[in-house]
Simulated assay, not measured.
Amino acid sequence: MLATAHHETGRTMQPVRETFAVSDERAIAILERAWAAKQLPWVKNPYWRPDELSKSWLGRGLVQLTHKRNYERIGQLLGTDLVTNPEVAMQPAVAATNMVQGMVEGVFTGYRLSQFFNEQKADWRNARRIINGIERADLVASYAKKYYAAISYTV
């Protein structure tokens, strides 16, 4: 989880907005430019575009929570209304709980932490599937091993 937060937040370990923009408006502009330039081939629908209530479901948090249905699902899991005000996903306590619960429960991609780490195995690389397929999996695994070594150190 620490390695995921490290990677997803650009090493800040603080909740961030997708594209690391300082505002939703700026993030939307960056995403629109990338979409127009066909730099987002994995995106089928531009989820960041404001809906009929002017809310954007762009990525926010320690892991990039995107799409309205995910804000609804995570909000229900956390007992927090993320639909009325999606910006709540940027609050550190909410972002941390979102990441932990989402990774433990398999909310993001269907994969759970326990599938990769248990008494029989520690699959550092494939654990990336919990969040984002195997995108940058070797890099995130290298971070994870370093965090694990640091917190496992005994004198």
Score class of each variant (00 low, 15 high):
Ala89Gly: 13
Leu82Pro: 01
Arg69Cys: 05
Trp42Ser: 11
Trp42Asp: 14
Leu58Pro: 15
Glu52Pro: 04
His67Gln: 12
Pro46Lys: 02
Ala95Val: 10
Asp51Ser: 03
Leu78Tyr: 13
Arg60Cys: 08
Val88Asp: 04
Lys68Ala: 04
Gln76His: 04
Leu77Ser: 09
Leu77Gly: 06
Thr66Gly: 15
Gln76Glu: 11
Asp51Asn: 02
Glu87Lys: 10
Gln39Asn: 01
Leu40Gly: 07
Trp42Pro: 11
Gln64Phe: 09
His67Leu: 12
Trp48Phe: 04
Glu52Met: 07
Val43Leu: 11
Leu77Val: 05
Arg73Lys: 01
Leu78Ser: 03
Thr84Leu: 01
His67Asn: 13
Ser54Arg: 02
Leu82Tyr: 14
Gly59Asp: 10
Gln76Val: 05
Ala96Pro: 06
Tyr47Lys: 13
Pro41Leu: 01
Leu53Ile: 11
Lys44Leu: 13
Ala89Asp: 14
Gln64Ala: 13
Arg73Asn: 02
Thr84Lys: 01
Glu52Gln: 06
Glu72Asp: 11
Pro86Asn: 05
His67Thr: 08
Ala96Asp: 03
Ala36Ile: 12
Leu40His: 02
Val88Pro: 06
Ala36Thr: 14
Glu87Gln: 13
Ser54His: 05
Ile74Met: 08
Pro86Trp: 14
Gly61Ser: 06
Tyr71Arg: 10
Met90Lys: 08
Gln91Gly: 12
Arg69Tyr: 13
Gly75Cys: 08
Val63Ile: 01
Gly61Lys: 00
Gly79Asn: 09
Leu77Ala: 09
Ala89Leu: 12
Trp48Ile: 00
Glu72Trp: 14
Gln76Ser: 07
Arg60Gly: 09
Ala96Glu: 04
Thr97Ile: 09
Arg60Phe: 03
Leu65Phe: 00
Ala36Pro: 14
Lys68Tyr: 15
Arg60Ser: 08
Asp81Pro: 04
Asn85Phe: 01
Thr66Trp: 14
Trp57Ala: 09
Val63Tyr: 00
Glu52Lys: 00
Pro46His: 02
Gln76Leu: 06
Met90Ile: 12
Val63Met: 03
Ser56Gln: 14
Val94Trp: 02
Pro50His: 07
Glu72Met: 11
Leu65Glu: 03
Tyr71Phe: 01
Asn98Gln: 07
Asn85Pro: 03
Leu62His: 01
Ala96Phe: 01
Gln39Ser: 00
Ala37Lys: 15
Val88Cys: 07
Val88Thr: 09
Tyr71Ser: 10
Lys38Asp: 11
Leu58Tyr: 15
Glu87Ile: 10
Tyr47Leu: 14
Arg69Asn: 07
Leu78Pro: 06
Arg49Ser: 00
Asn70Tyr: 05
Pro46Ser: 04
Leu82Thr: 05
Arg69Ala: 07
Val63Thr: 00
His67Ala: 10
Leu77Glu: 08
Lys55Pro: 14
Pro50Tyr: 05
Trp48Gln: 00
Leu78Ala: 04
Met90Cys: 10
Val63Pro: 05
Lys68Val: 03
Val43Trp: 15
Asn45Lys: 04
Val63Gln: 04
Gln64Val: 11
Asn98Cys: 05
Lys68Glu: 00
Met90Ser: 10
Ser54Gly: 06
Pro46Cys: 03
Val83Trp: 11
Pro41Phe: 04
Ile74Ser: 07
